[in-house]
Design a protein around this nucleic acid. Structure first.
Lengths: 345, 345
DNA sequence: TAGAGCCTGGACAACGTTGTCAGGCTCGGG
DNA sequence: CCCGAGCCTGACAACGTTGTCCAGGCTCTA
């Protein structure tokens, strides 16, 4: 039984190749390649014929083959915690903009704060031969990236430093920001200040906690364990933690919230309280100025962080950059009311 | 002059291949392939040797080559308007989750509401041979996708239907939602109701405007041009539009805001007003319940939309789905206070 | 003990593109 | 009239992987 040819430009599910275009235009394969890539050395007449064939067949260059040949994919990977988090949207967008300016596409992945999933994602991106990686680490050991780095995959860590490898990192001054935020509360007369944050194994959480401790220490205020809640992140537990601090034996008059999700929940809790409790949150939140009172926050600029990281990435690819560096971007205290409430003792 | 070999597994900037691994393990190329892909037919002892070589060399399969061979990339593309917009973060995330469940990666791109950029992005994704596309259209003519569809690229449009081609589309009931929202205001006694929305060339904007018109018509209320502001999107112009409606010769007592960005700006304007003006917004906004008054909105579920679209995409790839359909997801009116303010005449 | 059948491993081509190189053509100058 | 230079064009190999197919060695059965 004679087999029908497996490929034919019109068959559903297959695509025309340069060979098909060449056949139709009556030219050689390489000539098509030249036209597609705008290389010089093709007569206008030939070019027209080729272009016609391209349009007629709906040809689209296969970049997989191109990548295989050229070695560069013109794409970079971004691994973050959760794209749905309002902090990462703008960050991702600014990375994308920089990538676009360099003609690269962006592949996104959410690790959901799971180290295993982070590694899985990063390695999948490497298998696709992304030119570079921007990683917001979930895990704290990144030795698995060593072969990739050696192979020349540009890599920038964001928000938290890499574990056990030497790599670029761009982050906010979490320590300084938290310290200043807490100091702000102290300056307004507070001494019993609560801290609600994420697990200290997360670098940002640890740094912010350190900022809290140092600010308290600098003011000569001894800290009680019952003022600190670490590792809670889901709304229910944050709520309970906040309520305990507010009603315990040594109730706080102010709360420092370690990240935007905590802040939102604390706002809800405070709205239900009879007495007025001061609040400063890490990370800005939308509409914070429209709430009553406005929410005082330590803001980090997600777009700026993303842009800085992506630009470093492409400078690594240029060869302009070689030595890994740690870049710390300043935070900004935005006073809107909630942080200026005096203690109600 | 004898040329030094260009490749060698240890040279910086190159990566070991299966050939290198095979050489080191003393086996054939295909055996390495089998081990890497977990195919049967390899003795445990051979497998161990190969695995050892893989680890020693830091080998990582080159998926470009794999794709070239297999035809499927296990990646899908998502083209949206702006990843920084809080509506698209969750949408993107839910698409990613579905993709992950099918072993696929997600490539993201923002069109910035520019049809040309949309096309550019979509074609770049097609050149990379994504298996499928989820597109939130910026333009209104998608005939450029015909060759891709014919070639079997699964495609689902989201939020707005495709132009001039027959394709799946998943969207909210923009018309019904807006109509119900406006009817809600009417039910609370309003007759002079303003509408601020995007350009009507955008499908969602047009549908929401239609909902507004029909609700007014159903209530027998003639609409004045000065109550409608179309095509404004930047905060400055929204602000001016709102102020004009409120202070004009025939001032409105309520405003229907056509999308989340408009809503936010209108909230700011209303906060400055002496008299109380009712507001219903399309799209939910974070912390809407904590504002004074709480913001009544017509909510659409971004995650649900994303999930539905992505699931359809993979069912297209399965072959389970063939006929393009239009899927309209219901919206939900969430009353929180701002929409229940009576008219102040 | 021979033959059939199974299991393991490897040689080879193919995927679609681009870099290299050489051939053919035209044109101008000697 | 011939030759070299310069321009277009196309044949061919290579990128790294996987599918196909076959060889060789083994076990099992008649």
């Amino acid at each position: 039984m004679p087999q029908t040819p497996l490929r034919s430009a019109t068959r559903y599910g297959t695509r025309p190749t340069m060979k098909d275009v060449a056949a139709r235009a009556g030219v050689g394969l390489k000539t098509v390649s030249r036209v597609v890539n705008g290389e010089p050395g093709v007569t206008p007449e030939t070019e027209r014929r080729v272009q016609e064939a391209i349009d007629a067949l709906g040809f689209r260059r296969n970049d997989s083959a191109r990548v295989l040949r050229k070695g560069r994919t013109a794409s970079i990977g971004l691994v973050l915690e959760d794209l749905a988090d309002p902090f990462y949207g703008p960050l991702s967008r600014s990375v994308e903009e920089v990538a676009r300016a360099h003609g690269a596409l962006l592949i996104n992945g959410s690790s959901a704060e799971d180290p295993e999933r982070e590694q899985e994602l990063v390695l999948a991106l490497c298998a696709r031969r992304v030119d570079g990686l921007v990683v917001i680490p979930a895990g704290d050991d990144h030795r698995y990236l060593e072969p990739e780095l050696k192979a020349g995959v540009a890599t920038v860590f964001v928000d938290r430093p890499a574990g056990h490898i030497d790599a670029d990192v761009v982050l906010s001054d979490n320590f300084g920001g938290a310290r200043d935020g807490v100091a702000h509360l102290i300056a307004h007369g507070h001494r019993r200040i609560g801290f609600i944050g994420d697990m200290p194994r997360i670098h940002t959480a640890a740094e912010r906690l350190r900022g809290y401790r140092v600010a308290m220490e600098d003011a000569g205020i001894p800290v009680t364990d019952s003022w600190m809640s670490l590792g809670v992140t889901d709304p229910e537990r944050v709520r309970r933690a906040a309520e305990e601090m507010l009603t315990g034996p040594d109730p706080v008059t102010a709360i420092f919230a370690g990240n935007n999700r905590v802040t939102v929940t604390v706002i809800r809790v405070l709205a239900e309280q009879a007495r007025r409790v001061a609040l400063v949150g890490f990370d800005d939140i939308e509409l914070a100025d429209l709430l009553q009172p406005g929410v005082t926050v330590v803001a980090q600029d997600a777009s700026d962080i993303g842009r800085t990281a992506a630009e470093r990435l492409f400078r690594q690819l240029d060869g302009t950059l070689v030595t890994p560096e740690r870049i710390e971007l300043p935070t900004r205290l935005i006073t809107r009311g909630s942080g200026e409430i005096p203690p109600a003792d």
